[in-house]
Design a protein around this nucleic acid. Structure first.
Lengths: 203, 203
DNA sequence: AACATACGGAACGGGCCGTTTCGTAAGTGT
DNA sequence: ACACTTACGAAACGGCCCGTTCCGTATGTT
């Protein structure tokens, strides 16, 4: 009889889960230090205390390794729902910031790795698309509550807010203060961008 | 006598300026196609119809080559001065967009090259810092004209505007419509972000 | 004509990616 | 206790690319 085709224990020496974790952890550090192009898989192995084979047994190639590093440390977070669009958007922006400041997955040099085409394709859905859905849900609820007009342009609000963080952290390397997020959010909520802008039509 | 120590003609066969240009032109195309890590110097040489030596005679290494490619094609543009902050900021944003859409130096895959640490150090001043100064001048003039309060926070306005373009083009690959820029600009001019936010102080 | 420099082509050393092989370690079921 | 299965570290390998150096030739100045 086949020896227990149970997926729980596939027989043989089990993979060292602690090592799997260590690879992703030291990988993030080295990614911050060197960026994508200068990152050496062998250095990751050395720092994790293993051979290259252990890494390639877990990840198809360097791009997949880096994508796994990014996804393992990305803080997607829950979609905020405080009952106030202002507070929801602030929390949403702060979640973004947490991923891009300090040792975040999108901080400084690590951002170049995410934009590398082969890595980008692997992290796009899980990283950007999910967070985008959160933002859209926040705006939908705000419309339902009457905090925003129904023809508000979500692209401008969400991308200006996320773009502010992206530019400040990835390019300028400077932190955004919570009061600066609030200043932008208040401006956007006070005169909300519309899909059909008010200045059009009578021009 | 020393043979004319004139810097204009250093004697010997002069460098082929047309080739210098061709290297930078085909380099931009290949950068768009492959990104930084997958860009091969030898392919640039092949596409430009020359040997690798001709490239390395002009540029110290791959990073310097890519930096030169980016700087050669960057459209810095003049600082807009229309007399209206709204129009100045729109033109400022459109200048940014021109560098990031289509075959712009910061479009799509080319952005990963700019963020690569070694390249970034070479293009930072000439690319980002100069354009940032333009934005600050626009806001200063707007304050002088009374269009904005004197304690306006330039970081929020300029970085939200540039960040919108950066996120949409580099990450999402979608163009920003002029009306969307205007919607954001109008929101920022209507309730301008202050260095000391209104909600503070009485808290 | 003598000289100086750029040119394309080819070859080279060094480094990294990704694979493979080896002997060993750590789990399974009988 | 035993065979079996799989993961492990170490090392070697082929292939590709970076960056340099050589060559013979082309193109300019004096």
């Amino acid at each position: 009889m086949a020896p227990a085709p149970n997926a729980a224990t596939p027989a043989g020496r089990p993979a060292d889960e602690e090592l799997s974790r260590r690879i992703l952890d030291v990988g993030l550090d080295l990614l911050h230090e060197h960026g994508y192009a200068a990152l050496r898989v062998e250095h990751v192995a050395k720092a994790a205390g293993c051979g290259k084979a252990a890494i390639y047994r877990r990840h198809a190639d360097k791009a997949a390794l880096v994508a796994a590093i990014v996804l393992a440390h990305a803080e997607i977070g829950e979609c905020p729902d405080t009952g106030s669009a202002r507070e929801d958007l602030l929390e949403h922006a702060l979640q973004n910031q947490r991923n891009q400041e300090g040792k975040g997955v999108a901080a400084g040099r690590a951002m170049s790795a995410i934009l590398e085409p082969e890595v980008f394709a692997l992290v796009w859905d899980s990283l950007f698309l999910v967070r985008r859905r959160h933002g859209e849900r926040i705006l939908d609820r705000a419309i339902t509550r009457g905090e925003l007009p129904s023809d508000v342009d979500p692209d401008v609000i969400l991308d200006a807010l996320s773009g502010l963080t992206l530019l400040r952290h990835a390019i300028e390397g400077v932190r955004v203060e919570p009061r600066q997020y609030l200043a932008l959010i208040d401006a956007l909520l006070t005169s909300p961008p519309r899909l059909l802008h008010a200045s059009e039509g009578t021009d």
